[in-house]
Amino acid sequence: MNRKQQLFEEIYKDSYPMILQMCLGYMKGDIDLAKDLSQEVCINIWNSLESFRGTSSYKTWIYRITVNTCLQHIRKEKKAKKIAIDTVLYAVTEESNEVDVEKSQSLYKAIGKLEELDRLLIMMILDGQSYDNISEIMGIQSTNVRVKIHRIKKRLKKILDNEE
């Protein structure tokens, strides 16, 4: 196994759950579309491995590729909009109890109702990223990120409240 492949495997093991979860939220909970998008992210990671020079942190690097791949996917994603949100299944919840399944599904549904950019921003916050990190990933000012996130949180709450 060469060094590139070894590095890729390490990244995969460490970051794939985060990538898949982001893609799952972006694809409104559709696991098949999310897996396809995750594969695209992995291909972009593979293609970028040699360019990574450590100017930003390792995690920031993976987030940037994930966010960019999702945003580039915007044009293909339009077709996927027709998928009925109620039929969405979330494979990871197979082993969970019913309450957990319901909670997860409603969260993914709610995230799916946000605009593409807002989906990515809120998922990074859910994943525990700081405003400064998000600002570094997106290339927009930290104060702008903070205000946007505040607005998205409100919208997400409204969507979740309306569903109850």
């Binding site: 972009n44 690097w61 940037r64 590729i65 960019n68 945003l71 580039q72 990933i137 997106m138």
Partner: peptide, 14 residues
């Protein structure tokens, strides 16, 4: 179009 760039830069390149 570099996927390693910040999202805003990648969007501008796109």
């Amino acid at each position: 179009i570099n996927m390693l760039d910040q999202a805003l830069q990648t969007t501008e390149d796109t």
